[in-house]
Amino acid sequence: MGFSTVPCNEFVEVLASKAPVPGGGGASALVGAVGTALGNMVGSLTVGKKKYAEVEDEMWELKKKCDELQKDFLRLIERDAEVFEPLSKAYGMPRTTEEEKAEKA
């Protein structure tokens, strides 16, 4: 499942469940993506205004950085799910016998 592309309400519902992913890493990455989007919103409201003409070049650079960070954070939502899900399955493996303990390790 692509957690970076599901509706917000679905992401939150699955996050609140006992499903292993998304988890804290994916939620943190989502918050990072939203934060950079807000930064970009401020930039979008700033560029093109006479009042801020002297900082326009800087704002365009900052908006570009926000775009890159936002994409990185969205990728990290997926990456967190990819790497944590197998680990969560390992946590649930039985470890009664020496063989099971070795396999789990």
Rank of each mutant, 00 (worst) to 15 (best):
S28N: 10
G25A: 15
K18L: 00
F11P: 00
A33Y: 02
L38Y: 01
G43H: 01
V21P: 07
G25L: 12
G23N: 03
M41Q: 12
T46S: 05
L45T: 06
D57P: 02
A16M: 09
L38V: 08
V31N: 03
K18V: 08
L38C: 08
K51V: 11
A53Q: 10
G26N: 09
V12I: 12
S28F: 03
A53S: 09
S17H: 02
K50W: 03
Y52A: 10
F11S: 00
S17W: 05
G24N: 02
E61I: 01
K18N: 13
E54R: 08
A53L: 12
M59S: 13
G26V: 09
V31M: 11
V34N: 03
K63I: 15
G39V: 05
M41D: 13
Y52Q: 03
K50S: 13
V34E: 06
A37E: 14
G39P: 07
L30W: 03
Y52L: 08
E54D: 15
V12F: 08
G35V: 06
M59E: 06
S17F: 00
W60L: 11
E56H: 05
F11A: 00
V31T: 07
G32P: 13
G25K: 13
L45I: 08
F11K: 00
E10S: 09
V31R: 04
P22K: 02
G23R: 10
K63V: 15
K65C: 07
V31Y: 09
G35M: 10
V47A: 10
M41W: 02
A33N: 09
K49Q: 12
D57G: 12
K50G: 12
A19I: 00
D57S: 14
Y52D: 07
E13I: 00
G32C: 14
P20I: 12
P20G: 03
G43E: 05
A16L: 09
V31Q: 13
E54Q: 11
P20D: 09
Y52F: 12
L38H: 04
W60M: 11
A29W: 05
L45G: 04
T36A: 15
S44H: 05
L62I: 10
K65G: 08
L62F: 04
A29N: 06
L15W: 06
E54C: 05
K50E: 15
E58Q: 10
A29F: 01
L45W: 08
L15K: 06
G26H: 02
A19Q: 03
T36G: 14
E56A: 09
V12H: 05
G35N: 15
V21G: 04
Y52S: 10
N40I: 11
K51T: 14
V42F: 01
P20S: 14
L38Q: 12
T36E: 13
K64D: 15
G43M: 04
V21T: 14
V21Q: 02
E58W: 04
K64M: 10
E10C: 03
K63W: 08
Y52M: 03
K50N: 14
M41Y: 15
L15T: 12
E56W: 04
L15M: 08
M59K: 07
G35Y: 07
E56G: 01
N40G: 14
S28K: 05
L45D: 13
V47R: 15
S28V: 08
E58L: 10
G48D: 10
G39N: 08
E13C: 03
G24T: 14
E13K: 06
V47F: 07
A19S: 15
L30A: 07
